[in-house]
C-alpha cells in the first residue's frame, strides 16, 4: 500500500473539516476524489502535503508504511509526495528553470543520485516540457508570475513531470481550463501515469475523468468519504448531482 489514511480528523483554527476520512491508494492506481465546494478536498490535499496551518486532530496517515504526518513538507516532497496546487503561488524573481533545478537536485541529493548542472538540466527540462506542450520561453520566466490560469496549471504538471513523484495529489488541476488546455493537461497526466506511481485527482467536475480514467472514485462530503466505486460512479454523480450524496453525508 502506498498511502493509507485511517480515520483522519483534521482542521484549521480549531474548526474540524475532515471528520473521519479513510482512503487507501496502491501504486499504479489513479483515484478520483470528488465533492462539492467546501467538502474538504483541498484540506485533505494540504494535510497530505504538510501545510503548517492545518492541524491533525486524530487518525493516521501511512505512506509506504511509515507515518507521513511526522515528516516536514520538504521531507515529504523528497520522499516522493507531490501536490499540484489549486491556486499555484507566484514566486517573483526566481526563474522556473532555476527553481526546478534546485528542486530536482535536492531530491537527487536525498536519493544519492547525481545532481544535474544547468546545461544537463536544461536538456532534461526540455524533454519534460514536451509532456505538457510547454514553450521553453516559460523556463526563463519567474515561477508563475504573470502566467494565465491555464499556464499555471500546466506549470504544476511540468513540475510533477520533473520531480517524478510516487504520489501525486492534483488539486482541481482542471478548474479554470478551457477544453483544449484541459486536454493537454490530461494527456500530460496520462503520460506520467505508471505502475510505479499513484495519482489522486481532486476535482469538482466529472469532465476531467473523461480524459483521465480513474481506477476508483471516492465522493467526499462534509469531511467524509460517503460513496466509493469505480469510474461509473463519476457519471452517476454527474447525473444525479451532489445533493444525492449530501443526503448521505448528513445521515451519517
Amino acid at each position: 500500500m502506498l498511502l493509507e489514511v485511517k480515520d483522519l480528523h483534521a482542521g484549521i483554527d480549531g474548526k474540524e473539516i475532515l471528520k473521519g476520512l479513510n482512503l487507501q491508494v496502491k501504486k499504479g492506481e489513479v483515484h478520483a476524489i470528488m465533492g462539492p465546494n467546501g467538502s474538504g478536498k483541498s484540506t485533505l490535499s494540504k494535510v497530505l502535503a504538510g501545510h503548517p496551518s492545518y492541524g491533525v486532530i486524530s487518525g493516521e496517515v501511512l505512506y509506504e508504511g511509515k507515518n507521513l504526518l511526522e515528516l516536514e513538507p520538504d521531507e515529504r516532497a523528497r520522499e516522493g509526495v507531490f501536490m499540484a496546487f489549486q491556486y499555484p503561488v507566484e514566486v517573483p524573481g526566481v526563474s522556473n528553470s532555476q527553481f526546478l533545478r534546485l528542486a530536482y537536485n535536492q531530491k537527487a541529493l536525498h536519493h544519492g543520485r547525481e545532481e544535474l548542472d544547468p546545461l544537463e538540466f536544461n536538456d532534461y527540462l526540455k524533454e519534460k516540457a514536451k509532456i505538457v506542450d510547454m514553450d521553453p520561453q516559460f523556463f526563463k520566466r519567474s515561477v508563475n508570475e504573470g502566467f494565465s490560469g491555464g499556464e499555471k496549471k500546466r506549470n504544476e504538471i511540468l513540475q510533477m513531470a520533473v520531480l517524478e513523484p510516487k504520489l501525486a495529489i492534483l488539486d482541481e488541476t482542471d478548474s479554470g481550463l478551457d477544453i483544449d488546455a484541459l486536454r493537454i493537461v490530461a494527456e500530460g497526466v496520462n503520460k506520467l501515469r505508471s505502475p510505479d506511481n499513484a495519482i489522486i485527482l481532486v476535482t469538482h467536475y466529472q469532465r476531467l475523468l473523461n480524459f483521465i480514467v480513474p481506477d476508483m472514485v471516492h465522493v467526499l462530503a462534509n469531511g467524509r468519504i460517503v460513496k466509493e466505486g469505480g469510474k461509473e460512479l463519476a457519471l452517476e454523480l454527474e447525473e444525479k448531482g451532489y445533493d444525492w450524496v449530501k443526503g448521505a453525508a448528513n445521515a451519517n
Binding site: 513538507p73 520538504d74 516532497a77 501536490m83 503561488v89 514566486v91 527553481f99 528542486a103 535536492q106 520531480l163
Partner: peptide, 22 residues
C-alpha cells in the same frame, strides 16, 4: 510562497533564501 517551495522539496533555509533573492 514558502509552503509552495517546501512542497517541491527545497529545505526551509534554502526556500527562504530563494524567496529573499527573488
Amino acid at each position: 510562497e514558502l509552503f509552495y517551495l517546501l512542497t517541491r522539496g527545497l529545505p526551509e533555509t534554502l526556500a527562504k533564501n530563494l524567496l529573499t533573492y527573488g
